[in-house]
Amino acid sequence: MTNIEQGSISYSVADNIGTVEFHHPKGNSLPSALLKELADTIELAGKNEEVKLIVIRSKGDGAFCAGASFDELLAIDNFVDGKKFFMGFAHVLNAMRTCPKLIIVRVQGKTVGGGIGIAAAADYCLAHRDASIKLSELALGIGPFVVGPAVNRKLGTAAFSSLALDARNWYTSDWAYSKGLFNKVLNTTEELDEAVQQLASDLASSNPEAMKEMKDILWQSTGHWHATLEQRAEISGRLVLSDFTREFIQEFKKK
């Protein structure tokens, strides 16, 4: 994808490390076309025999991910399109879950909604000190239904409940680290990049068979996610059509 207004996905391989980077001019938000390309690229990297380890990151030094595209949410006018949009997030999470390669996620800034799902679906997640998080979906009238299984799996029900219900407030990177969303928090971008590169290099030189077995163990008991995430996408696809949600987004866009 080359249209900067629609965002872009880049994919490169060096030293057996596959790096997938997403970008969107509006806070690295994720419209449906970008979600599809992101899921497809993760699957492509997983099938590449040269790739031993995958790093997912977003472009720039601002927000890691602003979540769903508000412009696209407002354009949804029927249940089929609503479900289809939220299935985009489901496909990304399932691509990460079923990928035979371990995945590191680098989080350099604020992260909302679906971005937290991506961080939670990482096998190891490193973040900048400024990477605060917020699950804002309930404030929109939707709820974090699709990302819920990934966030609940990583943080536990109590912490997921805190994020999901306290939908208007940011939680710090230290809180996210204490709950297990972030495996490591670094003070500077340089330290973050060095830590990501070091871990990626270490893992890329490890036994691929052992890493695949480790991946399978880490994701045990998630085989139901295909059906579960589809059911969650149906809930979100229905709620996004509500007057509450549409009015909230319209007011938010005026700010």
Rank of each mutant, 00 (worst) to 15 (best):
V51F: 09
L135S: 10
I42P: 11
A63P: 08
K83F: 04
A33P: 00
L138K: 15
C99L: 00
R106A: 15
G143R: 11
K110F: 07
S32L: 15
K52P: 06
I133M: 11
K134N: 13
I133Q: 03
V51H: 08
A39Q: 00
G62L: 06
I76W: 02
Q108E: 00
G46F: 04
G82A: 09
S132I: 04
M96G: 00
L93D: 02
S136E: 13
L53D: 02
K110M: 07
A66K: 14
P31H: 09
L35E: 13
N48M: 08
N94A: 10
A39K: 05
L53A: 02
F64Y: 14
K101C: 06
G117D: 11
D71T: 10
N78F: 03
E72N: 06
A66R: 14
L38C: 00
I103N: 08
I104M: 15
A90E: 01
I116Y: 06
M96D: 09
L74W: 09
P100D: 11
K36H: 12
L34G: 02
C65Q: 04
C99P: 05
N48I: 01
S58C: 01
K84D: 11
H91Y: 10
K47E: 13
L140T: 12
H128A: 10
H91I: 05
N94E: 08
K101I: 08
I133W: 11
L38V: 03
L138M: 14
S132Q: 12
L53G: 00
V55T: 04
I42V: 15
A39G: 12
F89S: 13
M87A: 02
S136H: 15
S132W: 11
G82I: 02
G114F: 11
G88R: 04
N78H: 12
L34E: 06
L140V: 08
K83M: 13
E72C: 01
D61H: 15
G117S: 10
S132N: 12
V92R: 02
A122G: 03
D123I: 04
S132C: 13
G82N: 12
I76A: 05
Q108R: 00
M87Y: 09
E50V: 04
G115D: 05
D130F: 05
L138G: 03
V107Y: 01
A95C: 09
E50A: 12
A122K: 06
L93T: 01
